[in-house]
Amino acid sequence: MTAAHITVEHLTMAYGDFVIQRDLNFTIGRGEVFIVMGGSGCGKSTLLKHLIGLQQPAKGEVFYDKQNFWSADAEQRLQVMRRIGVLYQSGALFSSLTLAENIALPLGEFTALTKAEIADMVSYKLALVGLAGFEDYYPAEISGGMQKRAGLARAMALDPEILFFDEPSAGLDPVSARLLDDLIISLRDTLGTTIVAVTHELASIFAIGTDSVFLDSDSKTMLATGNPKQLLAESEDPRIIQFLTRGQGRGGR
C-alpha cells in the first residue's frame, strides 16, 4: 500500500435532509488509479463534488495528505484545489475561448511563465492528448471526444498531483475510450499522478483501476473497497458481482 493521498472518514453526503450516502471510509493511495463505481444515481458524482471542493459534506472529513480539507480556511483550501485537476463529464471547456486560450488560462493566472513559454506549454499539452494543431479551434468546432481530450489537456495544465475524472469514457466510441484509458495510465506512470475516476464503464474499470470504492444506492453506503479485479474474484456480495458482470453472475450464464 502506498502512502495515503486522500483520506475520507465517516463522510455523509446529503442535499438538505435527503441523504445520498452515509459513513464512507476509504483511502486513496498516491499514484493509484482509484475508481468510484456504483449504479446510476448512487451518488458517485456527488462524492466527486465533495472531493474537489464544490460541495460541503454534511458530516465527516476529507483529508488531503494530512490536511483536513473542509476545516481548512478558504486560502488553504484554494492551495489544495490548485494541486488538483478535474475533467468534467462534457469537458466544460469555456466556449468563448479557443482551445489554446482554455489551456493558457490557468497557466497565465497561476504561473510566472512568459507568453511564449505558455504557448509552447499549450502546444505540448494539446500534443499529449493527441490534438496537436488544434490550438485555434473553438470547442463548438470539434467533436465530443476531442472536447473531452481538450478538457483533459486543460485539467493537466498545471501538472496536478491528482486528476479527477467524471465519467471519462461516457460519450466516446470504444476505440477513443481505450485511447483515453491508455493516456490516463501513461500519465500515472510518467508523472506519478494520482487518478480518481468516477465511472461505470466496466471495460475501463478493469483496464485501469488499481483500487476502488463501490457505492450502493439502496443501502446508501459503500459496500466494498479494493482492486476491482480482486473484487470480482473474491467478493461475496451479490450486488457487487451483479454490477461487475453486467448482471450475469460470475462466469456468465
Binding site: 505540448y124 500534443a127 499529449l128 493527441g130 490534438l131 496537436a132 494543431g133 488544434f134 490550438e135 485555434d136 493516456l183 501513461s186 506512470d189 510518467t190 508523472l191
Partner: peptide, 16 residues
C-alpha cells in the same frame, strides 16, 4: 515516454 506520447498522434494535416 511523454515525448513519445506527445508525438504518438501525428498532427492532422490541414488542422492548423
Amino acid at each position: 515516454d511523454l515525448l513519445a506520447l506527445a508525438r504518438a498522434v501525428p498532427e492532422r494535416s490541414g488542422a492548423r
